[in-house]
Each structure stands twice: as structure tokens, then as C-alpha cells.
Computed example of a mutant assay.
Amino acid sequence: MAAATSLRLYPPNSNPLIFFSRKMVQFRGNSFFSTLRSSSSRFPTSVHPNPIRKPKPKSNGAVSVHPNPKPKPSGIVSVRPIPNGNLEPSGLVSIASSIPPPPPLPGVEGVMMEYICGQRRATLVAHSVWKHIVREGDTVIDATCGNGHDTLALLKMIADDTRKGRVYAMDVQKVALENTSLLLDHSVNPDEKELVELFSMCHTQMGDVVPDGVKVRLVAFNLGYLPGGDKKMITRSDTTLLAIEAAQKILMPGGLISIVAYVGHLGGREEFEKIEAFTSKLPFESWNCCKLQMLNRPLAPVLVFLFKR
């Protein structure tokens, strides 16, 4: 009878489990053993094929832990989301919603953008431009005071402690002067109201109310009819052109003639066209003339600015 023999595959006096575990780690490139390595419980922590890195403390003492990217079956590596980003259902990171909206533009730039977007009236655009021209203590003229909104806006721009500024406001309609006075009573104190002088007269005579030697910083025209009044009482192209000529004579260099022309009522477009023809012929050495007009709103008011060099 043949004698039995035994085959030993591990060194004597060694633990067979640890011996074969180390051998499998040596063959970690083999596809068969790679399946065995997927379970970390089969290996001691010291020989784990993908050890976890210890977090490193930051300068402020805080600890930031980011696990190592692990390859996915598709070969795509997942990346941790960036700060302030949003993880979309697709797994991609979107940062569009994390970008704050641009701040509103200051001053006249913001008003112009709102006007372009249809969110501001032409008169408010004019007021915004005035603020870049008029200074405290200036002399200004409201050539068509109407219900007083332009007069009030000008008063707030020129009023100061010196009380040297003046607003000369005029209109041919008595009701317009009364409405302007009433608005001022409810909007400013008596001392401020004294800086406004109201005249019942045609704006062609504006030069008569300005004291000798005083130059005017701004002359404002808001043409058409009185809102809430008689729509048959309107400004006329012939007197408007004469008033613009009168304003040119008393305006200081660096001053502005501001015109809001309304073209939706009878006679309004003719008035605007004559103003446009007149101002387009002014010498560019002395005047900068421009207009703001909505192209697809034919009845919208038109802004005209005449800046004196």
C-alpha cells in the first residue's frame, strides 16, 4: 500500500490566511483578484488597495474632508460640487442660478435703461438728465409749468441754504398756475416755496423775468395741452420756436434746453417737426442737439435736448 504524502503550499510556522492574503495583493492587477479586492473586509487595513486619506487641518483649525474620486463603470469620474453650485438631475453642476443678478445702474443710466424697456415716462427721463446739469443755487425756468411737477422737480435741485437759486415758472392758463401753487403748498415748506416765482405770461417773454446779468442753467418745455384741462388749449409751433430762441439768449454755456414734445394730439406732430427742423440747423460749434424717440410707438412723446457749449 502506497504511503500518503502531504503537499504544503505555505511556509512552516506561518498563518496560511495571512500568507495567501498577501499573495493576492501582489496579484492585484489580475482581473480575478480585483473582484476579491472589492471587499475591504478580506484585507487588513494596512494593505487596503485604496486607503482613505486623513483630513488635513486648515489654517483656521477647521477640517475639510473630500473623499477621493472613485472610477465608475462607465469610466466617468464624479467630481464633488463646486461651492454655491446646484447639482442638477443629470448629475452636472449648474452655477447659473448661483450668479447674483447685476446691480441696478445708478442715476441717469438706470433711468435710461428703464425708459428703453418701457418702464419710465419721458418726463422722468428728462428729470434725470436735469440732475446732471442743474446745481444748487442755479437759476432755472419752467416755460410751461402745467400742473407743477416740473417746477417742483427743479425747485428740489436748486434749493440750498444760500437761498440764491430761483425757479421762474410761467403759463398762459390761470388754472395751471393755481395747480402749481397748490402742489408746492403740499410738497415743500414756505421758505422753499419762496424760491419759486409764478408768472401768467407767454413763454416767448421769458427773458423779461430774468434779472439783468443772471444767466440761466436750464429751460424746460413740456409741450402740448394741460393734463386734466382744456385739450383745445395747446402750445403752438410758432410761439414755441420764438420761446426757444429766447431761451438761447439767456442760457449760460453748459446749460440745457429740455423739450418734451407730444405728437399724439392735433397739431402736436407739426410742432415737433418744426422744432426738429429748427434745432437740426443750430451750429454744432455752439450746440449739441439730440432726440430720444420710440420707433415702434409713433404717438409716444419725443425728448429733445439742446446743450449749449
Rank of each mutant, 00 (worst) to 15 (best):
L36Q: 08
D208E: 14
G255C: 05
R269M: 15
A220C: 14
K131D: 12
L251T: 04
S6P: 00
S78E: 14
S59P: 01
P104R: 09
G29S: 13
E194C: 05
L17C: 09
R166M: 13
I52L: 14
E197I: 01
K174G: 07
V129W: 09
R37D: 12
H132I: 02
M113S: 08
A246N: 01
N13A: 13
E194N: 12
T162W: 06
H203T: 07
L295T: 12
V210K: 02
P106V: 06
R166E: 10
I259T: 07
K193N: 03
M201Y: 01
S181V: 03
S200C: 14
W130Q: 04
A261V: 02
R269W: 11
V175H: 05
T240W: 09
A3N: 12
M157T: 03
K72Y: 09
L242W: 09
V216L: 10
N147R: 06
S94K: 01
N147Y: 05
S64V: 14
R42T: 10
G75H: 10
P44F: 15
N15A: 07
P190W: 10
V108M: 10
S41Q: 12
E194V: 01
R217V: 04
V302R: 03
N13W: 11
M233T: 03
A243N: 03
L241V: 05
H265L: 06
L251Q: 06
S258G: 12
R236M: 15
V47L: 14
S94G: 12
S74D: 15
R166P: 05
S38A: 15
T235N: 04
Y168V: 03
S31A: 15
T235F: 04
A62L: 15
A62Q: 12
G165P: 05
I116S: 05
S21L: 08
L226E: 02
L152F: 09
S78A: 14
F27W: 13
R80H: 11
A3H: 10
W287S: 00
S128H: 04
S187N: 10
P103S: 14
K274E: 15
S21P: 02
W287C: 07
A122P: 00
L105P: 02
A143C: 08
S14N: 08
M112A: 00
L198N: 01
I234P: 06
H203S: 08
R80T: 07
I158D: 02
T162F: 08
F20Y: 11
K164M: 14
H132A: 05
L182T: 13
M206R: 06
V129E: 04
A143M: 05
H149L: 05
P100R: 09
L87G: 00
A159H: 10
A220N: 15
V125C: 06
